[in-house]
Design a protein around this nucleic acid. Structure first.
Lengths: 217, 217
DNA sequence: GTCTATAATGCGATAGAC
DNA sequence: GTCTATCGCATTATAGAC
């Protein structure tokens, strides 16, 4: 405990800055979050923020980068276990819901794009796009594996965009209801119906698929 | 054409301010939109904006009020014509898509809540909530009528929230793809499946319901 | 109602001691 | 790496002539 490992001081400050900046920017948006707010909240002077990140843009880029890697690491990989579609979908949605629950700021930070576009640099805008592209790719791969859509990439794309719009809409809903979660129940029904609608649900389960109401009571 | 009807000068300026303010705030968010930006864009001096609206908050409140009444007027009423669910749903979704298409800023302005919460007054925050509550009430009433859910208010509520999350997610998607529209095709499939899932689709149409792929070709 | 001019404040960013 | 102090500038908002 000898005071502080010296070389870790900087890294710990860096993390503290990213923590508070991420929280404030997710809550208020990029433009409404000032350097002095972050400085006051995390206890370090403004000049330290500039020493670590160079600019307000730099802070936002670093916040987004960390949020992206953290969220993508928490989201389920493409190889979801499960014998059939219904099983894999249940596992997939449960993990997605948990990931969004554990990292609530991950998606909300993306909503700042509009406010960033105006007064942030090209690097920040590029990172926002990179973030959203990574999420779209992830969703496409994961849903393709869940539904077995190797031969129907356009269906996987539709399911992915549908899922991401629900996620985005949920992030918006949290402005109004802070406890709102990704409602995987309706989403599950919708995804199954969409797959069936496109005729790609091999194992026939057109309407219901092992949902609670089918379970013998 | 005698110069200008004199009494209309003020009203026309008022509208011009709201037009440009609405466009800028929808694009960049509340915090990132400055008085000087609006002033430069609409040609009137900053002091005129203050004469008309008193403050930046006042402008935002007025913008939101007009967007709310305009959008709600463009959205289909609860009494959608149609003999069965499928017909009414088609009409409903077509009108909703058209309304969101014609008033693209209507929903996007709502996304500014986060950036407003920080540095705007209570009136602005209240109006944002009012706006979103009005949309939720509209969606509940309209979908209740479309699906005949007078006896199942909780189902109407779920369908309404689902629809609004899709709309919110679509508004978010427009940050990245400006041409993105409310995809009523997948939404239609999802709503029918959700209704069927809750067992409230009286006229039996569990899986497909007069969709294009069923039409004889 | 619209204009010019300006006050008061907070912003992002930097300099330089330590 | 962290601190104090500060520069230059844009911001919201107001005063007062017209």
């Amino acid at each position: 405990m000898t005071q502080a490992p010296a070389q870790d001081r900087g890294a710990r400050s860096r993390d503290a800055i990213l923590d508070t900046a991420g929280e404030l920017m997710a809550r208020y948006g990029y433009a409404a979050t000032s350097i002095s707010m972050i400085s006051a909240e995390c206890g370090l002077p403004a000049s330290s923020l500039y020493w670590h990140f160079g600019s307000k843009d730099g802070i936002y880029v670093a916040v987004l980068e960390r949020a992206r890697t953290t969220l993508l690491a928490a989201l389920p990989p493409a190889e979801v276990p499960g014998a059939d579609v219904a099983q894999r979908l249940d596992v997939f949605l449960a993990e997605v819901e948990a990931a969004f629950q554990r990292h609530p700021r991950g998606v909300k930070l993306l909503l700042g794009l509009g406010t960033v576009q105006q007064d942030a640099g090209a690097a920040a805008v590029a990172e926002v796009h990179h973030y959203r592209d990574a999420l779209l790719t992830w969703a496409r791969d994961a849903l393709s594996a869940v539904f077995g859509l190797r031969d129907h990439p356009e269906v996987a794309d539709e399911l992915a965009r549908f899922t991401l719009r629900m996620a985005g809409g949920t992030a918006v809903a949290r402005w109004f209801e802070p406890d709102a979660v990704l409602e995987t129940g309706p989403l599950r029904v919708a995804l199954l119906a969409l797959a069936a609608h496109h005729g790609v649900l091999v194992r026939g389960t057109p309407g219901e698929t092992g949902e609670g109401r089918r379970v013998p009571g």
